[in-house]
Design a protein around this nucleic acid. Sequence first.
DNA 1: GGGGGTTTGTTAAAGTCCTTGAAATACCGG
DNA 2: CCGGTATTTCAAGGACTTTAACAAACCCCC
Lengths: 395, 395
Amino acid sequence: MAEERAVGTPVLRRLNTAAVLRAVRGCAPEPVRLAELVRLTGLTRPTVGQAVDDLVGAGWLQQHDPAATSPQGGRPAVRVSLRGRAAPVLGLDVGPHTVSTGIDDLAAHRLAAVRLPVGDTGAGRLLGVVDEAVGRALAEAALGADEIAAVVVATPGIVDPASGRILLAPSVPGWTAVNLSEHLRGRFGCPVRVENDANLAALAVAGERSGAGTLLAVQWGERLGAGVVIDGRLHRGTGAAGEIGFIRPPGEFPDTGDGRGPLERAVGAEAITERARRAARDRPGSALRSGRLDAPAVFTAAAGGDEAAVEVVDAVAAAFAHAIAPAVLVLAPDAVVIGGGVARAGSVLLTAITRHLEGLTLTPPAVEFSGLAEDTVLTGALRLALDEVWGRLPV
Amino acid sequence: MAEERAVGTPVLRRLNTAAVLRAVRGCAPEPVRLAELVRLTGLTRPTVGQAVDDLVGAGWLQQHDPAATSPQGGRPAVRVSLRGRAAPVLGLDVGPHTVSTGIDDLAAHRLAAVRLPVGDTGAGRLLGVVDEAVGRALAEAALGADEIAAVVVATPGIVDPASGRILLAPSVPGWTAVNLSEHLRGRFGCPVRVENDANLAALAVAGERSGAGTLLAVQWGERLGAGVVIDGRLHRGTGAAGEIGFIRPPGEFPDTGDGRGPLERAVGAEAITERARRAARDRPGSALRSGRLDAPAVFTAAAGGDEAAVEVVDAVAAAFAHAIAPAVLVLAPDAVVIGGGVARAGSVLLTAITRHLEGLTLTPPAVEFSGLAEDTVLTGALRLALDEVWGRLPV
DNA sequence: GGGGGTTTGTTAAAGTCCTTGAAATACCGG
DNA sequence: CCGGTATTTCAAGGACTTTAACAAACCCCC
């Protein structure tokens, strides 16, 4: 049955202490006056005082000198702020070419950031690079592995929610055989969560926007992935949610044998280049025939009005819009945010996608580019780790 | 900022009383011994006693005679149960042909059920039928309109979550002009919520299954709609979530001018009949040429091995699978449950859809028929209304 | 330099609630 | 009529928050 927890008076203390801690977090990174906390939490002065004493004692908060800033005449206020090092979290983005890791403190301050290239692909080698990146980051933050409060790892492929095992990762050969979460759990004494990279990127994108609402965040580069964030929380479904790369768009796109999905073969960065190459063949005057031909070049040419490039962009936008339209109809997201390499395409692609989606959906979502840079996935991993820590407020 | 509620000792009482009430609900409709509640809630005897006294005083619980059932030797236990009439809820399913209404008590006991046909279509007339159905149901349950604690109305079309206005309802001409929620709010003193009918059906289907997980519940008849339920909660998105009828499947399906979406024109019950008619034309021996030709007949013929019928069913299944595959990839639901008229098709359709989905998705969901009967939508409306009441436990 | 004003911190008493443990109650079977 | 059993009732004790009054520290201004 619904085994409810017994509720005695001590629970009140827990609740109030947690409320105070959250209030302090809401003001981070600024130190807060206790009187301000009274106003924020609605609790009374003695209660807040008690809670703050407890939190300082447990290492969650640090007291500041009353010396600084005395705004109005009156007794100098005690000011407290988050003691970030109380529960630092580690994020890890394991990609086929690069391993990025970062350490954030409780207040989301970056304590360390390390990025290492992966020379030759190979799962065993990758694990070594992961270890080295983690070691360097810990050294940079001057922390021991046992001090880390939560670890979140981003990896391509599908992750089993329960075990953290990687079930499918076409882009890293042999990667599914490695039990990454097991490996890291041995090194850290805290929960280690492995999550799909596109999902974490979605979380990062959602963090940039307002909390509520539904978001479909697409990562669009050579490969395509997406994450669904509903009211600030990641939607995982049975585990493989957001795998838009395997949507089958109209038309035939032969299997490339490298594990890519149909949509990736149709509108991935490489496919865009290939489309442009074919389009340029029939257009002697096209800008696509001169200079280096890659996806950015196609978008630049389209922005300049080059007919062949515009056609390519429109075809790509149409294929993408048709592919995601059913999902947009079912989810009715507030926005579709596009990140990854293609996000640097400029507005040509955006407007085309918007136009096509308008004809295919009932309440067309806003279509936007993500403003986040290369470390989107890492940001999302750290964000999820922080959420995890804040979720189990161990006051 | 995060305006936290002040937490004093009285809050404890609220919490515990609510826990007791939930525990009683968990045992409904059976009366519960107080000692049992102590075990269920983990609270102590005096606390439970206090809470029960409060709840009986407020009318939420009713005490039973100790006369009945004395299982073991010992002092007869005080037994309490939900006083259903404390907060009855009213559900309303407004369809183009029928208006159904029902009243449930707190324990989800049906107190009244009224179903009225709508003679001629027309928004004004429909409103009159709604009023009559509500009036009859109230009379049947011997309740006044002011005693109802929550009202949920199911309507076709897209509903604005904020105002409750109907934004788009192709199947009922003029229906968007009627402010249904305003009309009912004038009659009831409680919250009135208007919700898309397919969404409510989804909620009902989810209620039949275990609580957690992601569910895509499709209503498949002349028209197609769906609802998304995630961990027991309805996903609305911007308001139009689940409108799968407007997915555009491959192939051309001319606009019929009655507001139907492309997928409805491709695989709706009527489209199935039309497909069968065309298939039968070329097959002199087909079972489809004899007898009445409608969707059930097609499925029956396919189950019997009729070649033309099998082809039709397979084509329909393929179109449906292709249409929802992108949504399945993005959502990764545990199950796709199909209700509505087509759900009585038998397993021919199911297996065909399952087969096609397996090739189109990474983690194919279970595809099932809903076991619920005609009043699925009404059940969902009542369920949501009850959730609403239980959500704002006004202890 | 001293007093008023202001803001904040401190402390003790009171109130509310939950818990503990012992005693009382009510029914059964023999 | 008497133990046995399960439940209820009652009173004392402990934990927490609140209220309210008081003390501290700083500013400004005369």
